[in-house]
Amino acid sequence: MQRNSTALGNAWIVESVQYVKNSDEEMKAISSFDPKKEAIVDQEYKKFIDTTRLGASTYCIYQNGELSSRSFGLFL
C-alpha cells in the first residue's frame, strides 16, 4: 500500500472561502487554489456559511515534548 501524503481526510478545516457565481467559475477556480486552506462555494450557498468564525478557533497540541497551538476556521 502506498500513502498519498497530500490527500485530505473525510473532513478538514479551511481558513478562507472563495465565492463563485456559477459552475464555470467553479471549474476555473479549482485550478488555482489550495484545498487545505480554502473552500470554493457557489454564491447561492453564501447565506449558509458563517465566515465571521474563520480562523477564530484555537486548539493546542502536545507532541514529541512540544506544545503548540493552531487556529482554524470553516470545518468541511
Rank of each mutant, 00 (worst) to 15 (best):
M1C: 10
Q2W: 11
R3Y: 11
A7R: 08
A7W: 06
L8N: 00
N10F: 08
A11S: 14
A11H: 10
A11F: 11
W12D: 00
I13Y: 06
I13Q: 13
V14A: 11
E15T: 06
E15S: 03
Q18F: 07
Q18C: 04
Y19G: 01
Y19K: 00
Y19L: 06
V20W: 04
K21Q: 15
K21W: 03
D24N: 13
D24S: 14
D24I: 14
E25G: 05
E26W: 13
K28R: 14
A29E: 08
I30S: 10
I30P: 07
S32C: 12
S32D: 10
F33Y: 11
K36A: 11
E38M: 12
E38F: 00
E38R: 07
I40Y: 00
V41I: 14
V41E: 08
V41R: 06
D42F: 13
Q43A: 13
Q43C: 07
Y45Q: 02
Y45E: 05
K47Q: 12
I49S: 00
D50C: 06
T51Y: 02
T51G: 09
T52G: 12
R53S: 14
L54Y: 05
L54G: 00
S57V: 02
S57D: 14
T58M: 10
T58N: 09
T58V: 10
I61P: 06
Y62K: 05
E66P: 05
E66Q: 11
E66F: 02
E66G: 01
L67P: 01
S68H: 09
R70Q: 15
S71C: 05
S71W: 00
F72P: 02
G73D: 00
F75R: 12
L76Q: 08
